[in-house]
Design a protein around this nucleic acid. Structure first.
Lengths: 336, 336
DNA sequence: CTGAAAGCGCTTACAG
DNA sequence: CTGAAAGCGCTTACAG
């Protein structure tokens, strides 16, 4: 591989000048700049990033840690993250945590090892100690998005999960439903607790008592939605007329369970999801769901991290707006 | 950040010894190894990867270029790629091409700039010149998977697209269908041409003439499946009784078009997809489709690339097996 | 088994 | 506007 020395020789100048011509063209005369450009082409030079990173002690790389690359929720968040990063001259390294704490640890280690300048965390399924030592005052460039940690001080981009879940529940109430079940995500997750709280408040405000057997927990997968949906729909004396699911995949699993049990949606059962993934418009019936501004979440999170890296004074956390999208999976309660 | 010097001081030895203790523990005495380990913990050392990369001129990073991160087909391929890479001590940098040739160029540039050791290409939507100069004999470590380039000599992992499409078509014929349409992916893509060829051969072998108006092209999205599905299903004098789609998302779009037009699947229309994405079991009805061994494709591709990097003698390209999965979206032809 | 020393390819403060 | 030189933090061939 040709190095900066080869370019300098070909351009008949020093390596310092080549470096300047490439990184700060305005610090160099027109003639020199042109000679260098030509020499670069001539010898087929490309800058050795390892050397630059070592010298500058920065990598212009941001690591984004995902819980699971297969989750369709994240694709648009990533697209938002990447657009801002690339514009600012940063690359994005996507790290799939794959429910593996060791892997997460090794992604975090990319920062002290000078392979990444900062981290965006899209999951809270990480060793707690790892994050505790890296709160805002530690100087570790870390931004959390989509989810958040209880009782930790970390810059975070999120939505108002309690409010969004509450609106969804209120909407079901407004359709005359009173037998409203819910399917939560993993119970330890703060956003799941918030969504559950929003559901509870929605029922309480309508004077409806919650039933423990109508509050089930899944793991955000199609499959768990299907399994828990079957339990809700064929168990016990009374059947719910509506189910609020904490994400779209589980809601789509519930739709399938209803189909298997020959329960018609929305005539006999209303189903609401959360996220508005692309697929929610292609299931049968189309899914009523809470739309999250996923692009914007990604863009805002990356902006925040880049601002932190530049030591700019930035808003510590930001809450973005959601919107309930009404489609075919919800209707008036039977007999209402 | 503490450096190797700080560790050497704390362990009362040279930096060379520290380096050895960390990278080749067997080259160092037990006592020294322990002193170094303790010193590392004491000063909170972590190796500067930029310095190591510069010195070794390798990055232990593989870049995987995806056409579009939102495409659910790739998640499992990636998981296969990552598992092999991590085991071998490599990281994976996922690059979203986003239909942007400039971005692809910059990903390729990571290799000469010493930020990546090799590239795995999961799309052929890249500037042709970029690949032409990097064929097998160029020494550029590049492996293509899932897709391939016509007339270029590049190590490739793929399936037999012609055969898989042919089997799917034969299956429809065996159900008594003779009015079989197809929905292709982007026509310039070699794998799409192969699948189309398999379809044509299936019809020819059954003595059925192809009809140009029954060979439509989409872009692999839900939406294009829906649009083209409507055209196939409401156009002209005769309606096809079966549609073979070149991926699952388009097939799911076709299912929706059929629903809108009140055409019952599979009673009045059979639909076959390709890929077997997770969603194909949760649409209504469940999709008959060609299963691709996505994990295995990923694993095999990464193994091949790592072998190439180690200069091992390796099979140049490998074809993995597919399987037709019969589900609820196909049935006997009406009146057959 | 260990150390002194060279060198990977850049960038940048300093001097002119 | 340009160059000489130091130095970023490692690894490794060489010598002992």
């Amino acid at each position: 591989m040709p190095t900066i020395k080869d370019v300098a020789r070909a351009a008949n100048c020093s390596t310092a000048t080549v470096s300047r011509a490439l990184a700060n063209p305005e610090k160099v005369s027109d003639a020199t700049r042109q000679r260098v450009a030509q020499a670069v082409a001539e010898v087929g030079y490309s800058l050795n990033a390892a050397a630059r990173n070592l010298r500058r002690s920065e990598s212009r790389t941001i690591v984004v840690i995902l819980p699971d690359i297969a989750n369709p929720f994240f694709s648009e968040v990533i697209s938002g993250l990447e657009s801002v990063a690339h514009q600012a001259g940063y690359q994005v390294l996507l790290g799939d945590a794959g429910h593996n704490p060791e892997r997460v640890k090794s992604y975090f280690n990319l920062v002290p090892s000078n392979q990444a300048d900062g981290i965006i965390l899209l999951t809270t399924e990480v060793p707690k100690a790892l994050v505790k030592e890296r709160q805002a005052d530690s100087g570790f460039p870390l931004v959390v998005a989509c989810e958040y940690f209880d009782n930790l001080s970390l810059p975070t981009i999120h939505i108002d999960n309690e409010q969004a879940a509450n609106r969804a529940t209120e909407y079901l109430v407004s359709l005359g439903h009173r037998a409203i079940a819910t399917l939560s995500g993993p119970g330890g997750n703060p956003i799941c607790k918030d969504r559950l709280a929003g559901y509870r408040r929605g029922l309480a405000d309508a004077g409806i008592e919650t039933r423990p057997e109508w509050i089930l927990e899944g793991d955000f997968s199609f499959h768990s939605g299907y399994e828990q949906g079957r339990i809700l729909l064929q168990g016990g004396s009374q059947r719910p007329t509506a189910i609020f699911c904490q994400n779209d995949e589980m809601a789509i699993g519930v739709l399938k369970a209803a189909r298997d049990l020959e329960i018609r949606v929305p005539e006999q059962l209303s189903v609401v999801g959360f996220d508005d993934i692309g697929f929610s418009q292609y299931c049968e019936p189309e899914l009523t769901t809470v739309h999250q501004p996923r692009q914007a979440i990604g863009r805002t999170a990356m902006k925040l991290l880049l601002d932190i890296l530049k030591d700019r004074n930035v808003p510590f956390d930001q809450t973005l707006k959601t919107q309930l999208i009404v489609r075919g999976s919800t209707g008036r309660a039977p007999g209402a």
